[in-house]
Write a protein that binds this DNA or RNA. Structure first.
Length: 436
RNA sequence: GGGCUCGUAGUGAAGAGGCCUAUCACGCCUCCCUGUCACGGAGGAGAUCGCCGGUUCGAAUCCGGUCGGGCCCGCCA
């Protein structure tokens, strides 16, 4: 009967059996230590028998082993317990030398990322790399937990579409039984439609962006958390919900994974329950005044402003997450709602965290006639098949609603303090990488 | 798409016209070592210095091209 690494200490004085991967050998002559890795972590095994040590000869890191031995309490062993008088059985022999190191931290220098991803299959077995994706899983878990607790229904929408309609990013064209289709760059239309069913919905799914962007914050396949909620009383309801969700997930993860985050050298979390909010115009004005670079005519924030306002908010508001609201009407998409109190701005806020935009949170125009009007103003044809089904939902009644498109990869990157969004993705896809 | 950068054993780095028959660390192989946990010690194998061409008596090093990365901008989340 197999027990796990974390259970060895509960079986002191008993003959136990563990199974896992050979993680590290340390031969000290008459005494050999090996670490065996399983899903819970490492078990230290002490081997003194020459014949048992000889079984390990030529076997590389990654060998799948069964180890039977006596569980001993041992203060000198990691975790306070180890296996002694061990008998080793090789379940899957491995003779190939791993191309990268498994038991020492891997280089994450930008110049070495290509090697990191080239050997990703084995590099992910590195304990430090594995921690990144455990933390990612926890973030997703707590985001989901918050959304379920707030009556959001999890949905799945199609990723193969007839044509690009959301506007914005470039799309991938694919061959669809001889015809042309595109990969979804956002589930936005579908989630808005679904507010007509459940009021509150969310989806965690990939989105595909064919942008020729080669930066530390872009990939071709991203994991998006898309949220949409109906019957809002104003844009603030959306911002509050997303804020509370992020606060919930980050504080939980920082508590649960304190040790892992520390070993990954993640920054200390500086967060307030209520995130500071500044308008785009305010940020432009403050940034221009502080740096001398005039951004007052920019319609969006420039990347350096995103960094600057986050540093400003951390210092002055004690919060690394900050909302930038009221984007200028020049940047608006046809589905945005114009600010009723100020027609030069749109009900649209971006959530920034540690210098990077991680979510965009707009309120949508929900009035059918106004939508048609706004589409025509943008030169779009409401009769176009790409808009037909979408508009049907409005025609038959959608409440005031808004939501967010939330970049999971970027959240993981910034939570851990990584330098490139790709480091937060198991197998990243960018303009020049499609494998592994 | 534009600008700027970088390609040296499996991995990470040093070398910046001759001292290079290319150095170091990790990993690998052999040997020694009974409490290691980045174990330690001795030895060994492993690189046509991304590729092509040029300058030079001489090129890892300088120049041109090419291929492949990276960073930033634009675009975008």
């Amino acid at each position: 009967m197999r027990i796990l690494s974390s259970e060895v200490k509960d079986h002191i004085g008993e003959e136990v059996q563990i199974e896992g991967w050979l993680h590290k050998k340390r031969l000290l002559g008459g005494l050999t230590f090996i670490n065996v890795r399983d899903r819970r972590g490492l078990t230290q095994v002490v081997i003194t028998d020459k014949d048992e040590v000889e079984k390990l000869r030529g076997l590389q890191i990654g060998t799948v082993l069964k180890v039977e031995g006596m569980a001993h309490e041992e203060p000198r062993a990691p975790g306070g317990a180890e296996l002694k008088d061990a008998k080793i059985t090789v379940l899957v022999p491995v003779e190939a030398e791993p191309p990268i190191e498994i038991d020492k931290p891997l280089s994450h220098k930008p110049d070495n990322l290509d090697t990191l991803f080239e050997h990703r299959v084995l590099g992910l077995r590195n304990l430090q790399e594995a921690k990144v994706f455990k933390i990612r899983a926890s973030l997703l878990r707590y985001l989901r937990e918050f959304l379920y607790d707030n009556e959001f229904v999890e949905i799945n929408t199609p990723k193969i579409l007839a044509g690009a309609t959301e506007g914005g990013a470039e799309v991938f064209k694919i061959d669809y039984f001889g015809g042309e289709a595109v990969l979804a760059q956002s589930p936005q239309f579908y989630k808005q439609i679904m507010t007509g069913v459940y009021e509150r919905v969310f989806e965690i799914a990939p989105a595909y962006r064919a942008e020729l962007s080669a930066t530390s914050r872009h990939v071709s396949e991203v994991t998006m958390l898309d949220i949409e909620m109906g019957f809002i009383e104003g844009h603030e309801d959306v911002l509050d919900m997303v804020q509370d969700m992020v606060y919930h997930a980050l504080t939980k993860v920082y508590k649960e994974h304190a040790d892992d985050l520390k070993s990954l050298q993640a920054p200390e979390l500086v967060l307030k329950e209520k995130f500071p909010r500044y308008t785009v115009a305010q940020v432009h004005e403050m940034y221009t005044k502080a740096t001398g670079t005039d951004t007052t005519n920019e319609k969006d924030l420039i990347p350096d402003e995103e960094k600057w306002i986050c540093e400003y908010a951390t210092k002055n508001d004690g919060c690394e997450a900050v909302y930038v609201t009221q984007f200028p009407v020049e940047a608006m998409k046809f589905y945005h709602m114009v600010n009723p109190d100020d027609p030069t701005t749109v009900m649209w806020g971006d959530l920034l965290f540690r210098g990077l935009e991680i979510a965009t949170c707009p309120q949508r125009e929900h009035n059918y006639d106004k939508m048609i009007e706004q589409m025509k103003a943008k030169g779009l044809d409401p009769e176009h098949p790409g808009y037909k089904y979408y508009l049907q939902a409005f025609k038959h009644g959608l409440p005031a609603h808004g939501g967010c498109g939330f970049g999971i990869d970027r959240l993981v990157e910034k939570t851990i303090g990584l330098g490139n969004v790709k480091e937060a993705i198991l197998f990243p896809r960018d303009i020049n990488r499609l494998a592994p």
